[in-house]
Design a protein around this nucleic acid. Structure first.
Lengths: 337, 337
DNA sequence: CTGAAAGCGCTTACAG
DNA sequence: CTGAAAGCGCTTACAG
């Protein structure tokens, strides 16, 4: 039953439709001048034969692949599948497909060419939080536009679209101030990222500006379990902060669990918590976490728009876009009266 | 600064290395007979020019693309990014790359050919839980092997590798029985899937076999929030089950939250809970959920192995693989004495 | 609007 | 082991 992969080509369609091969080709290129009548004939023949234009052959002549390389996000953070889906959908709308760029390209092994570049992607969207130097170099080498999604790696010749993390930090500080908070902590993860740095900077500067007191910055770990000891240590001190702004919801939930389960603290009465990301768990009965929501849909749409524009207009000017973030007030913060 | 995309071809390398174009080509095909000396010359020239073989041109002659279509999982389930990463890595090892097949191919819009098939993927791995009929039809049409990852859609000409869900159900029932449970519920989601059906069947038949009582099956919703009302209704009944086996960890955590926060039930003393998936939250202090862990690494490895084998050996016999599941006993079940 | 022909960058028999 | 040449399935000037 293993019929050999009989590929139907434009030649076959041409023969059946009684036209030349170039005419068939034209029919499948939007904007070409083909009479309605022949167009119909060709469509019929194509349908009868189940013809699909061969994208490889096409890209060989047009010198564009309609393929976008996608560096996908690190595992384990619940929000990322949506990202992927949004980007993929958005790309499809624009006539592009996504090919996955392996998360870790082995930087040492120079002999094995990262085979992804053999596919001549027209552009790259980088949604991974970790930095891959060789990727940027390759892209620059081959003049491939690259846009960073919800992240910023400095000193790279690349565009980015990112949430306004600084403003989020400011907002968190303002909220704490408005409800009378006098001491606050910014709880961060272990890997320094630009976006996280912005949150921290916005929070700390605004808190000091408003209250005259410095917010403490404590480094824990982005992983829930690995953050626990640091949080325990914090709560074991003689005086505890009145409010904690956490780099991620994950971290915020670790704080909540420790505070309530191990230190019998009430939230928000004894201690207030704000997270970042609005992961699904933030809405769970047990957490009801006040947090910030990024507009991932818009981030995806804009990222795609940017690469596509740079590809099609051969536009090399980099664009840096900042998207506002939404404050979601739930039950882990005190209400402003 | 917008240097035109100067593509370096094998011809350029040939000229620089002082050999013929076909020799250059041979150097980049493993197994071709080229003298060590010319090989070195070519490598040097290639490096100097930063040459990358053009995969499109290659696949045009070889009639294989080294591209695998990947139907990626539905959003919002925390475990899936790992899946993607594992599959992608595994593919890379085998010399393949993954191109994303949009989650929703519009079945109605027949005029717009799903452009993904213009890329002539050599095979497909389907990791989405939702069924896409046209995808299977396309694959069969074009004789493209397809393997389902951690899921089974019946009546399709496709291989699959899947966890032993039936055994997991049996194990859950056995555990409940061993600690003396007399009444149990299987709490399921809203979308019927084959894998979930297996869990249910294994659980119900084993529970009845061991205890002589029938387990109740209740349909909630895979979404945490949407499942809450059903769970509330269950706990509002006059008598409550002693144990609940949930189709997913998500569901199990909804049960726990409702039980503890709204009905003041103790877990596992008043009610036992078992989940399925071992999502990161299962280890959180607040949950410590007893659950089952799928061997995603192995699922990924086997899936890839199967497609690659079917591609390279032109092997059309379907393979159905079942991978054992690991029971992880935490604190939401009573201990066997 | 349509066709014949060249060319995209490779691989692969075929000679030598 | 190596080179010249045909061919993979398209697109795109060039004529008509």
């Amino acid at each position: 039953m293993n019929s050999p992969k009989q590929t139907v080509t434009s030649k076959d369609v041409a023969k059946l439709a009684g036209v030349s091969q170039s005419t068939v080709s034209r029919v499948f290129i939007s904007g070409s001048s083909v009479s309605e009548k022949t167009k119909q004939k060709v469509f019929e023949a194509a349908k009868a034969l189940n013809y699909r234009p061969n994208a490889f052959a096409r890209s060989l002549t047009t010198n564009e692949s309609k393929l976008i390389g996608l560096v996908f996000p690190d595992a384990d953070y619940p929000i990322h599948m949506k990202t992927l889906q949004l980007i993929s959908t958005e790309l499809q709308k624009q006539g592009y497909s996504a090919v996955l760029i392996p998360w870790q390209i082995d930087d040492n092994d120079n002999h094995s060419i990262p085979n992804i570049f053999q596919y001549r992607v027209d552009g790259v969207i980088a949604a991974s939080a970790t930095f891959n130097k060789s990727l940027y170099e390759e892209c620059e080498e081959f003049n491939i536009p690259i846009v960073q999604y919800a992240r910023v790696v400095k000193d790279t010749k690349s565009s980015h679209v990112v949430s306004d993390n600084y403003a989020a930090g400011q907002l968190a500080a303002q909220h704490f101030h408005h409800v009378g908070t006098k001491s606050a902590v910014y709880l961060t993860g272990n890997v320094p990222t630009y976006t996280n740095g912005e949150r921290e900077a916005g929070f700390c500067s605004e808190f000091e500006e408003l209250t005259g007191k410095q917010a403490r910055v404590i480094e824990a770990d982005y992983d829930y379990l690995d953050s626990l000891d640091t949080i325990r240590a914090l709560f074991s001190e003689s005086t505890q902060p009145q409010a904690i702004f956490c780099a991620t919801d994950n971290l915020a939930m670790a704080v909540m669990d420790i505070a309530r389960l191990e230190f019998n603290l009430r939230i928000p009465e004894d201690i207030q918590v704000i997270g970042f990301d609005d992961i699904p768990q933030a809405q769970w009965l047990n957490y009801q976490l006040t947090t910030f929501k990024q507009d991932f849909k818009r981030l995806a749409r804009e990222s795609v728009k940017i690469v596509v524009n740079q590809i099609q207009e051969r536009n090399t000017s980099l664009v840096k876009l900042m998207i506002p973030v939404q404050f979601i007030e739930r039950n882990t913060t005190q209400k402003i009266k």
